[in-house]
Design a protein around this nucleic acid. Structure first.
Lengths: 261, 261
DNA sequence: ACAAAAGTGTTGACCATACACCCATGC
DNA sequence: GCATGGGTGTATGGTCAACACTTTTGT
C-alpha cells in the first residue's frame, strides 16, 4: 500500500505524481513495420464412418513452399472484415451449409514468411480462424488455384510456414470447445442419434473420455435435446431414437459454464 | 455417407473428384486492403485496499479522438513480435516486475478508425492483449506522450475507437481466466494470506461467487499452496498464515482442466 | 468483553464413475 | 440363437453449498 494513494471514486492518474526529472527520455525506436494481413483457416471435420478427425489442406501452387501443403488462406480485401475473409476462403474450397467458425489467434512475429528477407521491412500477419464443418455435407470444390484435400489429423504432411503450429493450436481449441460448448450440434444433421454424438466426441477426444451410458444421461439431463420418437436403424443392433437440438431450451444455458464431458 | 468415398489412410482430395465443368470461375474481387498493425492493451490491476478492479487508460494527445481516453497502444515496429510490442507499451506506461500477459483477440473490420475515410484503402488492425499486474507494485510512469490513469471498471469514461468493446472482451477473459488458471498468483506478492487471494477473487468475480471457508478448503486441496507457518497480522482479527505458490507442485496440474471457483 | 478476521467441521444434496443388465433389431 | 448396438438402473465415492462453530488477535 505504501506509495499508492488513491482517491475514492476517482481515477488514479500520472498527473497526481508528476516528478520533474522524468521528462521525455525519447529513445529512438526502429521505424514502424509494414504489414500484409491475411487469414488462415484451420477447418476440421469428423468422418463418422471411419472415426477420423480431418483437416482441410491446400497444395501450394507458387513460391514460397511451392508443392507443400498449407492451410486455406487469403489476404484480406478492401471493405472486408476478417471474418468475411475467413468465410470467403472456406467457401472457395468447400461447399457447406452448416458450420461453426471463430477466430483463433493472430501470428505476426518476424520471420514467419521467407519473403520477408526479399522485401525488406515487409511483415506478414495471419489472423487464424478455426472452423468445424459437417464432413458428410462438405463438398470439395475443384479449385483451379490448387489441390484441396482432407487429411487425418494423425497423418499430416509437412506444412508450409508456421502452419503446423497454427494447426496444433486449432486442434487444442477444438478439443476444449467440444467439452464446454455445443458446437457439435452445429455440424450434426438436424436429426441424429445419441450414438452419433458420442462417436463424434470419441473421435475428437479419444476413446476413454467417458463411458457411453454416462455420456448419454449427462447429455440428456442438460435438457436441450428432444427425442422425436422416430427410430433409425443403422445396420445391426436396436434402432436408436432420433434427437433434435432444441435451440430455445439451450438459450438460458448460453454463456453459463457448461461441461459436456 | 453418399458421395463421400474415402480411401483408408489417405487424404481425400479434390483430384479424386475433379469435374470438368467447374474450371476457373474467376470472379473479380476487390483489391487487397492495406493495413496498419497495432497492439492495444487491456491492463487490469486489483486494488486490494479498496476492493476495486482497475483498468489502465491513456489520454489521447492527438486526433482522432483528441482528449478522449483510450487503451495503451502502439504500432508494431520493425523486427518486433506482437507480444514484444505489447510488452513495450505496457512498460512505457507503468513499471512492474510481475505480470500476466496474453493475446486477447484481433479487431480488424472496416470502419474501426475514422482516418480510414481520409486515407482511402487504409485499414487499421489491432491485436489486443490482456494483462494483469500487481497494483501495489505498479508505478505509473510520468509520460510526456499523455496522461495515464487507473480507472475503476464500473466508472469508465467514454473511450475512443472501439475500445469499449475491446475492454469488455478483456474483462470477460479476466473473469474466465481467474476461474480456471492460476493467474492470480502471478500478481500476488510472494507471500500472501488466503484472505488476500479471496479478496482478489471477490473484487473480480463479485461478492457471491463463493463462501470464504469453501473457497479456502477448495484452494488448499489443490495442493500447490504451501503454508510457511509465518503469521501476518493485518489490523484486527486473528493473524493469518502466509502462503507461497509452489510452482513445482502446480506443474503436473498444468494443462489440466482446473476449477478455482 | 467484544468485534473482527482466521480457520475447522458437519450436513444434505447433488454428481461422477463404473458397472450390470435388459431391449430390439439383423443375420 | 446370438452378435450388435440402444437404453435403463444402481451402488459407491466424491464434490458443492450453506452454515455453525472455534480460535486468536486488537481495542
Amino acid at each position: 500500500m505504501s506509495g499508492s494513494e488513491v482517491k475514492k471514486d476517482e481515477a488514479i492518474s500520472s498527473e497526481d505524481r508528476r516528478s520533474p526529472n522524468s521528462l521525455g527520455h525519447t529513445e529512438t525506436l526502429p521505424p514502424r513495420a509494414n504489414f500484409k494481413v491475411g487469414v488462415d483457416n484451420v477447418i476440421f471435420s469428423v468422418d463418422l464412418a471411419q472415426n477420423r478427425l480431418l483437416v482441410l489442406l491446400v497444395m501450394r501452387e507458387r513460391e514460397p513452399f511451392l508443392g507443400k501443403w498449407n492451410l486455406p488462406r487469403t489476404l484480406v480485401r478492401q471493405g472486408e472484415s476478417l471474418e468475411e475473409a475467413a468465410d470467403r476462403v472456406l467457401a472457395s474450397k468447400i461447399r457447406v451449409k452448416n458450420l461453426y467458425l471463430e477466430q483463433l489467434y493472430s501470428f505476426g512475429g518476424p520471420g514467419r514468411d521467407p519473403r520477408e528477407s526479399l522485401e525488406p521491412y515487409q511483415r506478414y500477419l495471419s489472423v487464424s480462424y478455426f472452423a468445424l464443418v459437417r464432413f458428410e455435407e462438405a463438398e470439395l470444390i475443384d479449385n483451379p488455384a490448387g489441390q484441396v484435400a482432407w487429411y487425418p489429423i494423425d497423418t499430416l504432411p509437412q506444412l508450409a510456414f508456421d502452419h503446423s503450429k497454427i494447426l496444433e493450436y486449432g486442434h487444442r481449441r477444438l478439443r476444449n470447445k467440444l467439452e464446454y460448448s455445443p458446437i457439435a450440434f452445429d455440424v450434426l444433421p438436424d436429426l441424429f442419434t445419441l450414438g452419433e454424438v458420442y462417436q463424434l466426441y470419441t473421435t475428437v477426444l479419444g476413446e476413454n473420455f467417458s463411458d457411453y451410458s454416462n455420456f448419454r444421461s449427462k447429455l440428456l439431463k442438460l435438457g436441450f435435446l428432444c427425442d422425436t420418437g422416430v427410430k433409425a436403424s443403422r445396420g445391426a443392433g436396436r434402432p436408436a431414437s432420433l434427437y433434435r437440438f432444441d435451440a430455445e431450451a439451450f438459450a438460458p444455458l448460453k454463456n453459463k459454464p457448461l461441461v459436456f464431458i
